[in-house]
């Protein structure tokens, strides 16, 4: 889906950098200036700069900026603690909260005209899913040592080779479905918005879809992080 106007691409073009016309660039420089990458960097820069500006120095009596971040971080912490216990939530908080804030912001930024969601590219979602997938297996090995293989062999020893194949398929299905769901939902939102803007943008037809887009963005962010939590909890608990 070609977006009508992407501000960063326009600016890069104006500076003189090559911007790929298709989804994938040819040269290395074109690969680095693909829209989903530049917008991903924009979000990273936003997440670095805005908390620095709004937080400044931490105070005992929080101002508006600090209040917002305290509510967000505290709410996330409570949310994770409900699902995995306070101690494990504290251990995994940095990676999970980063995923949540990044995904929600990346989904939401596509609602503005002239911006696109990096999560509507399969590259970004697959990268995040691989991190989650590796993370939960590493946690499994950290918590159980070599006995972690018992998660994959099932309760009966005779059935073990059979169960390993099933678990292998199930693990690949996890990897694909987690990335494809986020990607598919956000791409659908982007395409729908683009088409509606082009066809009937003059009479505000995309407005209901924009409202739905806010909802979808939040829900997909929550679901992605929650599934990551469920996988991690499953890897850390004892094999049945």
């Amino acid at each position: 889906m070609e977006h009508p106007i992407l501000f960063i691409s326009v600016i890069l073009n104006w500076i003189g950098l090559p911007v790929p016309h298709g989804p994938i660039g040819g040269t290395l420089l074109e690969k680095l200036t693909e829209p989903y990458l530049t917008y991903s960097w924009l979000i990273m820069a936003f997440l670095f700069v805005v908390p620095k500006l709004t937080l400044g120095k931490l105070e005992l009596v929080p101002g508006t900026g600090q209040n917002f971040w305290e509510a967000l971080i505290g709410g996330l912490m409570d949310f994770f603690a409900e699902h995995m216990g306070r101690e494990k939530a504290r251990m995994l908080f940095p990676v999970l909260a980063t995923f949540f804030i990044y995904i929600v912001l990346a989904n939401m930024i596509g609602l503005l005209p002239g911006f696109m969601s990096p999560t509507s590219s399969l590259n970004i979602t697959v990268a995040m899913t691989i991190i989650v997938w590796l993370l939960h297996h590493i946690l499994g090995f950290r918590y159980h040592g070599w006995k972690y293989y018992k998660h994959f062999t099932g309760p009966i020893a005779v059935m073990a080779p059979f169960m390993i194949i099933l678990e292998l398929i199930g693990n690949f299905a996890r990897l694909v479905s987690l990335s494809m769901r986020l990607f598919g939902n956000i791409l659908a939102k982007e395409i729908l918005l683009g088409v509606l803007f082009m066809l009937v943008g003059a009479i505000f037809a995309p407005l209901p879809i924009l409202c739905l887009g806010v909802l979808v963005s939040l829900i997909q962010g929550v679901v992605f992080v929650l599934l990551a939590v469920i996988y991690c909890v499953g890897a850390m608990e004892h094999a049945h």
Binding site: H83, G170, F172, A173, S177, L178, R181, V222, L227
Partner: peptide, 28 residues
């Protein structure tokens, strides 16, 4: 609070399960 937790984790579980089922067949 418990009900709220149930709704969100049910949402995650069920929205994932149909896709995982179909993908398991395809991947196999």
């Amino acid at each position: 609070r418990k009900e709220e937790k149930g709704i969100l984790s049910d949402l995650a579980n069920y929205s994932q399960s149909g896709m995982t089922f179909a993908l398991s067949v395809v991947i196999g």
